[in-house]
Design a protein around this nucleic acid. Structure first.
Lengths: 318, 318
DNA sequence: TTGCCGGTTGGGCAATTGCCCCTCCGATGG
DNA sequence: CCATCGGAGGGGCAATTGCCCAACCGGCAA
């Protein structure tokens, strides 16, 4: 009541956080919380539920599950990966975002803990965005966050799932948005764009990134590129006809993991994918539909790291 | 499965981790977990409980208040406090009055909500005054507000920051101003004053207060006692020489939280501070300058409750 | 004023969870 | 061989939790 007068909804969240803390950290029952906070049991229950639904409470499991570690080791071995993490799957929801996001956040956090300056480059996508949400709030002004591709659609509007800004905000690091759109309208325009100092600087940062995290897009009707409107149905059919199975930061590649030489790729403005680099280029991806895309990216060594689900790991190894 | 034969208990932990993951991350019920893992519901429950007891699950609250509650819990534990609240600090104004005032007001409001008669005794200071301003207007004629110290300066003028009157007005409760000045001119005069029926009655109310809220004053050039003219520069230097680090309702104490036996304290007319009382004696204080004063008050158990800022809580614990 | 509307509260009940206690099973030792 | 023992599994019940629904509250328009 009283405290609500000033910042109603922020105080309600505060109460939710407090209730969540009392419940999950202090181990109170909802009755005790109700008593301590001077509200009814039902309200306490609502606050706890809100802490959950507003993603105020983050749960992490600190135990390497043997099966997942085995799968990760097998993937590392088979595909010569530097970084590989496998998150447990719920058999009935095998590609729940949260598990993979937590695993990816842990990997990212490891790098961010360094006192030395680190450059982290990010792609886009739900997975990366969910990853950032799982990261604890930390202060890392020594690092740099850079985006590997634009967040503007052709008409200038921003794409959703922008992970770079969120990450930079969360860890208090300077960040470099990608100064070009996702696609240029022509090869000529692209060349001109790439001459800009800002573009050259950002692309250079991407090339020197100490950790790159990217999503992987499949090439079917649910393809992120298509859903987000970068690729018309006709273009996509054409690309599929040319053997496209997946894309990373909009670079479309075939089943061998080779970037396809095509009109579309010649308009892609994203930072180039490094060739068999020493630097970690880690894909964060799951979902049955992405299987061929992930397999190809691994085969072609477009990536040298993978964070995925138990279910996907099993399929990749079979 | 296969790994069981070699490290049975590690597999049990694995199962616990998996069960915990399915429960806390994937949101399954224990029945579903039991079905998916092929065990009985009871076993699933045991596994989930084990994940908890083995500290496999780590819960984090991503809301400023979460950190505050951690700090408050640590302070409560370290200094054996009954009431402890830590308000979030704005990094750029770590001791902003408002946050602490809101926290203190919430604590006060909890007591005021009681239908039973409660006696609330107050000290003085900006913090308490700000606290009262944060309190909702409510009708509490059943309670009693009493001041722990005078609001008259030597010349009879009133001190600013009088919280008692404001609080009484705001909640519509009867109130007892402190019928003596802050300082008597001599020990003899003080004894005479304390014989007055009104004084004895008020002091008695203070001793029986169900909640006492006081400020803490530091002992440097910005000391409230000095700024408000109760303590000359020379007197303060003398007290500092005698080890004074802080004061509560004008009672000056040393770094161990012991009221100093000195000429000044023998003239202090404020209600006595209860010794290790069961009744809540809560300090509302923040500001870097007050650190030694707060630390000493905690050490000497002059207070058994504290409402402070995140920044101060961190310093107190470090 | 009245009545509607969105949002919050508390009662009550069903689902879920925590836990006691008994049983079973394998190991151990007499 | 049998008695004992400790640990895991399961039945069952009480406590806790989740959620639906009706009541209530404050704002707003008629």
């Amino acid at each position: 009541m009283s405290q609500n007068r000033f910042t109603p909804e922020s105080t309600r969240l505060d109460d939710a956080a407090r209730a969540g803390w009392l419940y999950y950290v202090a181990g109170n029952t909802q009755d005790e919380i109700a008593r301590k906070m001077g509200v009814s049991r039902q309200t306490a229950q609502r606050l706890v539920a809100m802490a959950l639904s507003e993603r105020l409470v983050k749960v992490r499991l600190d135990h390497p599950i043997g099966r997942c570690m085995d799968l990760a080791a097998a993937l590392r071995d088979r595909f010569d990966l530097g970084i590989c993490e496998v998150a447990p799957s719920d058999p009935e929801a095998p590609d729940l975002l949260t598990g993979i996001a937590i695993a990816a956040a842990a990997e990212l956090e490891r790098v961010l803990k360094s006192p030395e300056r680190r450059i982290v480059s990010l792609g886009t996508g739900r997975n990366l965005r969910a990853m950032v949400e799982q990261l604890p709030i930390m202060s890392c002004p020594q690092h740099v966050v850079v985006s590997r591709l634009g967040n503007m659609m052709a008409d200038g509007s921003a794409t959703p799932y922008n992970a770079t800004i969120r990450l930079a905000e969360r860890i208090g690091a300077p960040h470099f948005p990608y100064p070009l759109p996702v696609l240029a309208s022509s090869t000529q325009e692209l060349s001109a764009m790439q001459q800009q100092q800002a573009a050259r600087n950002t692309i250079d940062l991407c090339a020197r990134a100490d950790l790159s995290l990217v999503g992987i897009g499949q090439m079917d009707l649910t393809a992120p590129l298509h859903v987000d409107g970068f690729l018309s149905r006709a273009e996509m059919d054409e690309l599929s006809g040319a053997g496209a199975v997946g894309e990373i930061t909009s670079w479309v590649y075939d089943q061998h993991g080779h970037i396809i030489d095509c009109a579309f790729n010649r308009r892609v403005a994203s930072a180039p994918l490094p060739h068999s680099s020493e630097r970690p280029m880690v894909a964060v991806a799951s979902g049955l539909a992405k299987l061929p895309a992930i397999r190809a990216a691994l085969a072609g060594r477009l990536i040298n790291g993978l964070i995925t689900s138990e279910a996907m790991a099993e399929r990749l190894l079979s």
